[in-house]
Simulated assay, not measured.
Amino acid sequence: MTRRRLYLRAGLYAEGPSDYDFLLPLLDRLLSSLALSLFPGACDVEDSLGIDAPHAARGERAGRISAAIADRWAECTLFVIHADGAGDPRSARQSCVDPGIDAARCASPNVVAVPCVPVRETEAWMLVDVEIFRTLLGSGAQPSLPAEPEREADPKLTLGRLLKEGGMRRKPECLYRLFGEEVNLAALRTLPAFRIFETELVEAIRAVARAQGWPG
């Protein structure tokens, strides 16, 4: 008898190219880690897809999110909708994420979607792990990472400054994928906004499992 396996593939709708560069590999790692803990040995996780509204889809952000989900509905089992919090993540979620998810669910009530809303910008999530900076700048590098990255007024500026001070000549955006591939998940879990995201991602995985016939 073939053992049942959970299938996961996320579609990521993000604000810009650099957000996809960072969040796609991070999402792959996070989904694999969570799936392994929830369904050990019984889960297949495919690489996440960057999604966007088809070229013909125009209008407000909510409509574009809904169109992007509809366009990749057959390929993905859950969707992650990113928006920078700009200092007020609750408001950003309500105005930039929830309407799009609601619009998608009007068309397909079974859509499983998760908001991903850093307090300000995703760059704050790159400021939690000194080891990545040592990989990039040398093992002796001692960058002064902020104690509370999500309180940084301009985390993108802080990231660029730390890399420049360490002698990095490449543009920070060229390194975002590496940060997504290597940033320590335990360090990320010290950030409140990331913990919210991870908690909701766990619930999304469970919702996908129920839709695929798993109990509970």
Rank of each mutant, 00 (worst) to 15 (best):
A74Y: 02
R210V: 13
A86E: 15
D71H: 15
S33F: 12
P25V: 07
M168N: 10
S139Y: 05
L159C: 09
D88W: 02
E203S: 11
D44H: 12
S91F: 04
G63S: 10
S95R: 14
I101T: 03
A68W: 11
A53D: 01
C106Q: 14
G59Q: 01
R206K: 14
A153S: 09
P118Y: 08
W125D: 02
V114D: 03
L137H: 08
A124G: 12
Y13A: 06
V183W: 01
R58K: 15
D47S: 15
R105Y: 00
L8D: 09
E131Y: 07
V97D: 04
E121G: 01
T158Q: 14
A104R: 08
A57L: 04
F133D: 00
D98A: 14
S18D: 12
M126K: 09
A62E: 11
A211L: 15
I132Q: 09
S91M: 01
R5L: 04
A70W: 07
W214F: 15
L201I: 03
N184S: 14
S66C: 13
I132V: 15
R5P: 00
G140I: 06
K156Q: 09
S139G: 11
R64N: 02
L27P: 00
E200W: 09
G87Q: 01
L26Y: 06
P146T: 02
P89W: 03
M1F: 15
